[in-house]
Computed example of a mutant assay.
Amino acid sequence: MKLRAPAPEHFTSRLRGVATTARVGTWLGICFGLCFLTGLVSHYAQNVDQPVPFPTSPAWGYQVTQGLHVISGTAAVPLLLVKLWLVYPRLFQRPPREPRRLPLEALERGSIAVLVASGVFLLASGLMNAAQWYPWEFSFRRTHYAAAWLAIGALLVHIGVKLALVREGWAERPDTEPTEGGGLSRRGLLRTTAAAAGVAVLATAGNTVGWLREVSAFAVRSGEGPQGVPINKSAAAAGVTETATAEDYRLEVAYGATTVSLSREDLLALPQHTEELPIACVEGWSATGAWTGPRVRDLLELVGAPAESTVEVISLQESGPFRASTLQGNFAADDRTLLALALAGEPLDLDHGYPARVIAPNRPGVLQTKWVTRLEVPA
Rank of each mutant, 00 (worst) to 15 (best):
I30W: 12
I30Y: 10
I30G: 00
I30H: 01
F32S: 12
F32E: 06
F32A: 14
G33W: 06
L34G: 15
L34M: 15
L34V: 15
L34H: 09
C35T: 12
F36E: 11
F36Q: 13
F36V: 14
F36Y: 15
F36K: 11
L37H: 09
L37C: 13
L37M: 15
T38E: 12
T38C: 15
T38P: 09
T38M: 06
G39H: 01
G39A: 10
L40N: 05
V41C: 11
V41E: 10
S42A: 15
H43D: 12
H43V: 11
Y44G: 01
Y44K: 10
Y44V: 03
Q46L: 15
V48S: 07
D49V: 10
D49Q: 13
Q50D: 06
P53N: 05
P53C: 06
F54N: 05
F54Q: 02
F54I: 05
P55Q: 05
T56C: 07
T56D: 01
S57E: 14
S57W: 04
P58F: 02
P58L: 05
W60N: 11
W60F: 12
W60D: 09
G61E: 00
G61Y: 03
Y62E: 00
Q63Y: 07
Q63C: 06
Q63I: 04
Q63H: 07
V64A: 11
T65N: 12
Q66F: 00
Q66D: 11
G67D: 14
G67A: 14
L68N: 01
L68K: 04
H69R: 10
H69K: 09
I71L: 14
I71N: 09
I71S: 12
S72G: 06
S72K: 08
T74F: 10
A75V: 12
A75W: 07
P78K: 14
L79G: 04
L79I: 05
L79V: 02
L80H: 04
L80W: 05
L81N: 09
L81R: 08
V82D: 08
V82I: 11
V82R: 06
V82W: 09
V82G: 05
K83C: 05
L84N: 07
L84H: 09
W85Q: 01
W85A: 12
W85R: 02
W85Y: 05
L86R: 02
V87T: 04
V87K: 01
Y88V: 02
Y88N: 00
P89Q: 03
P89V: 01
P89N: 05
P89S: 00
L91Q: 02
L91C: 00
L91K: 00
F92W: 05
